[in-house]
Design a protein around this nucleic acid. Structure first.
Length: 121
DNA sequence: CAGATGACAAGAT
DNA sequence: AATCTTGCCATCT
């Protein structure tokens, strides 16, 4: 597992129950400003043993990114979010309402993960 | 080893 | 408002 993907996964793991983050937002918190695409690349390779709440990451339009290559996990994503109390309207959710706004403590926790990455290398 | 590929987003047309 | 272009990197063939 690369350091880049590790950071992305660590950030996603901080997203609280019932809230969501956009790809761009995750990228920023992972120290990958301007590279939201890497988040998409990373999430594509997420497996069950990664223990990452991948369903809480959505695109900037407030929609689930659907793709036939996801083998149905895209449909599952919306189901999981609805089970967390998030309501969809015409396939979209209200970003202003459900978007995760990390506290300083959470940002510090992420920074701590970065330090651990450094120590590991 | 080289090439294809894949859950995005902002700006231009 | 909808489509097209470009930036970016780890993994798999």
């Amino acid at each position: 597992m690369s350091k880049t993907y590790d950071r992305i996964y660590n950030v996603v793991r901080q997203i609280p129950y019932g809230q969501v983050a956009t790809y761009g937002q995750v990228a920023e918190l992972a120290g990958l400003i301007g590279k939201p695409r890497l988040v998409g690349y990373a999430l594509y390779r997420v497996t069950a043993d990664n223990c990452v709440p991948w369903h809480r990451v959505i695109n900037a339009k407030g929609e689930v990114s659907r793709s036939p290559l996801r083998n149905g996990t895209d449909a599952l994503q919306q189901t999981l979010l609805e089970e967390e109390g998030i309501r969809f309207t015409q396939g979209k959710l209200d970003l202003g309402r459900y978007r995760w706004q990390p506290s300083w403590a959470e940002i510090a926790a992420i920074a701590q993960h970065w330090a651990e990455d450094e120590a590991a290398t």
